[in-house]
Design a protein around this nucleic acid. Sequence first.
RNA 1: GAGCUCGUAGCUCAGCAGGUAGAGCAACGCCCUUUUAAGGCGUGGGUCCUGGGUUCGAAUCCCAGCGAGCUCACCA
Length: 543
Amino acid sequence: MFESEFERGLFDLRKAKLAEIEKLGQAAYPNQFPATHTVPEIRTTWGEAKTEELEAKRVTVSVAGRIMAIRTQGKAGFATLQQGGQRLQIYVRLDAVGDQGFALYKLLDLGDHIGVSGYLFRTRTGELTVHVERLTFLAKAMLSLPEKYHGLADVELRYRQRYVDLFTNLESREVFVKRAKVLRALRQFFDERGYLEVETPMMQQIAGGAAARPFKTHHNALDMDLFLRIAPELYLKRLVVGGLDRVYEINRNFRNEGISTQHNPEFTMLEFYQAYANYHDLMQLTEELIEFVARSVNGTAETEFNGHKIDLAQWQRLTLREAILQYWPEEGGPKPAMTAFDSAQVLQSRVQAAIISLEKAAEATGRIAPERLAELKTIREALNAVYYESMKGAPVGKSVYNLFEAVAEPFLIQPTIIYDYPVEVSPLSKAKPDDPAHVERFEFFAGGFELGNAFSELNDPVEQHKRFEQQLSERDRGDDEAHQMDEDYVRALAYGLPPTAGEGIGVDRLTMLLTGSRSIRDVILFPLMRPEKQEKPPQASGS
RNA sequence: GAGCUCGUAGCUCAGCAGGUAGAGCAACGCCCUUUUAAGGCGUGGGUCCUGGGUUCGAAUCCCAGCGAGCUCACCA
């Protein structure tokens, strides 16, 4: 618990102070405090009230909070209480609270919780303040608070000790308040449209619905291995088979993969399914949804992210192939023709030409801004990977998709829907009726990253069974992200899934966008961290 | 998994052409009845992330490890 002798000493000192406080007739750990107002209520109601108005009305309040600043001046003093994410100053003077009250005031430390009763007034400098008449001790901070001006700045400490971060950095608190608003707005949006909120298993015998490595766990009584889900998809579609035409679920997914500014091992996913709809319907719905959530959370459709102003009410829609052409780097030479996307060989040579062109451009340093040079390097490396994979025999659809990720995705700052994906990268989507090489699928992007993925669902059990078998052979070849066979899901489809469209949205990422947070860890209260030091590794029990 | 950067008091940070550690906040004592990053005087507080190495001497240089951030790769 203690970081040092300093902390141990401080703790002992605070214990002594607690004993002193008890001697004054106050409980060290009282059970409650009957506040008449919260700090935000006081600020809302009296924040603008004039000095004379407060004097005339003599507003009395009882309010509680944590002491975030304290300034003693002999026989009087100020303190700043924080509660509900807001602050309120209090003024304590000997002649108002008496000897006992003032003795208590002098025993208070930064971080302590107290309750005060008194009347509101404005100080000489105009600050709304409680003139305290009675002081009640509520709980003590036994450890010292972070530096009061900078707060807790160490990113690692902010994640590990979120409880300190939350009360010292109010911006951090604000992010999580907004996150709650995001969840509320999402639920409101779907509830109003007749979707039923459901909860499907998070422990699954077959981890399906996405391409990802799962976490494994074990049920002792049943002596059965289970996986933490990587997606709720297959269960939600079973529900549509069952006649729940519109369902949504907001819950955690778990993927046993790398961690980055956009990836946490557990993350919150919204998935929703709508019978009798296709992906065009969901494009419309998505645009409405995102704008609605933005306005509910921020009061505006505009958001600031990574130095960009993003307008979530203005969308562009491009096919995947159009996007490649539109975002084709100038320095990469002439754009490929649309027909290049139909042939692996043609595409390969176009990519090769672009790599060479980019290399030439990079040599002409001085003519290109350093930031652009870094971008070009990233693009070039990505193109190299596309080329290499293609040479190894990747299907053309896979290469087209990789090409899109290389040249377009990072530049999709403004809200963009990308649609019509190659069938090779979309095992659960339905093919376009007039173009079997492409599926009815879209993903949408903002801020340079993917926010969601949607498609018209494959509902042909025979075709689904076939695709699972293909996945099985991928598994045999060592791809541990390939789907397992889910016979029961195929059976569900065999009872008849109506034409259905479904979509998944990363709630953490949406929250990042709406709060201007660059790292997913800034929108997750307790992101996964490695243990700090290896003292005694806790004994794994029961296994 | 790879590259770059960082790790000094409870917190925020200096110190790094090698000479056994400093400031501010916080803490402790004293003064101060409208202050607000309050102020003034004084005091205490450090395995300089860990372990090796180089050196007469290491917070500083080198190596390894641990933890973190960023970028890239995989992915949502």
